[in-house]
Design a protein around this nucleic acid. Structure first.
Lengths: 347, 347
DNA sequence: TTGTACGCGTTATCAG
DNA sequence: CTGATAACGCGTACAA
């Protein structure tokens, strides 16, 4: 094993094995056309030299695009899991994934530029937190390759989008509480997060469906345990509580339950709480709250389906909503306490 | 704006602008040598055609390697933050980042292969959870480029590694408890996680330093809230508790505190608890526990320093330990309850 | 400013 | 069927 300063090229391997470059190529591409003896010699020479085909040169030459570009922020485990699944699915079809991370200071467009410069075959934006306009612009600048926004509510021409049907999910959650007899139901909203909008809309319309519009209230919260805890403290300080709270997601629900329980407000006796996502923590014995599942597998396979179709030349299908996962009923929900609202809370 | 099936190349731009390809190149590289009039015309032609330089061809031609390969699992926010910082630091120096995700089913070596095929200038492995041997093999197969393991305890020739000094940190944590008067101190170990070893070693030696070896105990736990909660339940079931518990990390501490508090064990009156990392959640009002900070910024800048040096030709420096961040004392630690061990716990 | 060789591998085309 | 020769993909670099 040598460690050359300049890495070995195909030419080096060919010279060492005493064959032509094209023969080395046939061997490394795994296509038939080389005698076992030569194949062996070439492989040996390559191993000796630590040769590894140059991916850039490979891609450059072959006219087919075999790379799928993926952007994500990598702050949500669920999104990272999607990449994992995408890896498997695309690999199976002979594609490679190229990943670009976007951050607070690094826009999606910026991340996608790297991918586009690599001449990727398609772009998958996972949970893009950019304004609609920016995504549409990106799609226009992408030279006509398929652009798919996963886990994003977006209805724009030329861009495919896949998202859980938040409104249907909210209908299930609110329906569950309404059936238990709740009327004063508040919503701890994912204020400030892009995907909060469809969910909020779902809450509002679900309350209307059950004739509870007057009794509902939307409280700005956020998407983290921290923000859930903060909004719970605010509620306690304010001294007024509903009989049930719908949380923007499970982390917010965790924060709510934590602060309520410690503040002397019993769950579900004093207040019922439901989350959204069914993250592993929601099943913890000391939390154990009702929530609705986000089936990331379904979402991912839908994304893959769209990807395959679009790569095959099918036109964009716009926004697709996935049916929500099942409601997981646990011990954070029950019938409301008699007497309606709690006015005064023991600090 | 046209949307060509085959993307425009430099040749197309040159033809449209009525100049040579070389001139287009000089304009797009931003080097002087084109008249304002031609520059303008070229830029216009490029915009008309939606031209974007092919990154692969660019890299292939220019003999300098300008890409830093990064692998990570993206399950830890802290690691993702490191990538963000790396982006800024390397960009400043004219490098680009190429990211490959490793997963449970996708080894680091596999991820690195993609990067190596791109002929990256160096490899940064962020928190690699692979056996030492695999990383050493990878470094050997990398053709002599710098390989740096960030947030990883690894003492192997040819590989640079940077890691918080876990032993020093443990010494601080155990010292804090010992000074408060604790003697029966248990450690909820990050069993199964690669980086658990130095931390466990640190606990054991710190206990020895304080002459408490006999009183210490290492309990297998894990690295998540869930696992912290589980080990706390086990302790409660067992009915025997120390006066203080050191958690492998903050998530484990969260789980411990949650279950203890709900189980009627008061923190810190009955048992003191310390975490490790100082994640945002540790400061939540209802948790508010003592922990030690992981200064990811320091770690990252050290990684960048090493990267720069090694790219400049300096030899590998092996393992480097960073001094631990400050101890953040909050309300989860106090003097031990009188009377030593708690034998029986109210369920 | 332009011509042209070159980077590294792939893909016809052609010879034995 | 096995193998070699040469053109090509898209930009860059250096001489003219």
């Amino acid at each position: 094993m040598t460690t050359p300063r300049r890495p070995a090229t195909m030419r080096d391997v060919a010279a060492r094995a005493g064959v032509s470059r094209s023969l080395v190529s046939t061997v490394f591409r795994g296509v038939p056309g080389a005698s076992p003896a030569n194949r062996e010699r070439i492989l040996q020479a390559a191993a000796d030299l630590g040769y590894r085909p140059d991916g850039r040169a490979r891609q450059l030459r072959s006219s087919q695009r075999r790379v799928i570009g993926v952007t994500l922020t990598a702050t949500q485990p669920f999104h990272v899991a999607m990449v994992e699944a995408l890896h498997d699915a695309t690999e199976l079809r002979g594609y490679e994934l190229s990943i670009a991370l976007s951050t607070d200071t690094r826009t999606i467009a910026r991340a996608a530029d790297t991918l586009l410069a690599q001449r990727c075959a398609a772009l998958v934006l996972i949970g893009p937190s950019a304004p609609d306009e920016e995504i549409v612009d990106l799609a226009e600048a992408s030279g006509g390759i398929p652009v798919i926004a996963a886990d994003r509510f977006l209805d724009a021409p030329g861009v495919d989008a896949v998202r859980i049907d938040d409104e249907a999910a909210m209908l299930q959650l609110v329906g569950h509480l309404a059936h238990l007899g709740h009327k004063d139901i508040w919503y701890a909203d994912g204020a400030g997060y892009v995907s909060a909008e469809p969910r909020r809309r779902g809450f509002v319309s679900a309350m209307a469906v059950h004739g509870l519009s007057e009794r509902g209230r939307v409280i700005p919260a956020g998407a983290t345990l921290r923000e859930g805890a903060a909004v719970a403290l605010t509620m306690l300080d304010h001294g007024e509580l509903p009989t049930a709270v719908v949380a923007y997601n499970d982390w917010v629900a965790c924060g709510l339950i934590d602060v309520f329980t410690r503040g002397g407000v019993r769950v579900p006796e004093d207040v019922s709480i439901v989350g959204f996502d069914n993250i592993p923590e929601s099943a913890l014995p000391h939390l154990d709250f009702t929530t609705i599942e986000q089936r990331s597998d379904d979402l991912t396979s839908r994304v893959v389906e769209i990807l395959v179709q679009r790569l095959a030349g099918a036109p964009s299908t716009g926004l697709q909503l996935m049916p929500p996962g099942p409601l997981v009923v646990r011990s954070s929900t029950s019938s409301p306490r008699p007497g309606g609202r709690l006015r005064s809370v023991a600090g």
